[in-house]
């Protein structure tokens, strides 16, 4: 299972890198989304994929799940949700204001003497 997850994460990171290297802003945003998905999956996988009863609520179960990775991943998901939505709104605003979503045309060259 871990091997499968490793491949999934690898593919996610790969596609994210590919998308983030493209010129269109929207593709870049999708790329960042994939990147954070990959990071979250990695967090969950690294902490060990196992079954078990919820901890703290009982003392008889044979094995317990580790609650920490779940808490971490939830936090990380919420944060990336916030950042992605901010980025989307910003990209939309930038497109309206600057009239382009091509990263090549968003270079800061003016006034750099």
């Amino acid at each position: 299972m871990e091997i499968l997850m490793a491949f999934t994460i690898g593919i996610l990171f790969m596609s994210a890198t590919y998308l983030m290297l493209s010129k269109s802003l929207l593709r870049i945003i999708i790329g960042t989304g994939l990147l954070s998905h990959g990071a979250h999956l990695l967090l969950l996988t690294m902490a060990g994929l196992k079954r078990g009863a919820p901890p703290l609520l009982g003392e008889e179960a044979a094995s317990y799940a580790d609650p920490l990775p779940q808490a971490l991943i939830l936090t990380a998901i919420v944060i990336s949700f916030g950042v992605t939505s901010f980025f989307l709104v910003l990209a939309y605003r930038a497109y309206q204001e600057l009239g382009t979503d091509n990263m090549d045309r968003l270079r800061g060259t003016e006034g750099n003497d």
Binding site: G82, L88, V89, Y92, Q96
Partner: peptide
């Protein structure tokens, strides 16, 4: 609040 603010911000314009 946050979700609807986001949706409204994009939708309003």
């Amino acid at each position: 609040g946050v979700t609807l603010t986001i949706i409204q911000t994009i939708g309003e314009s």
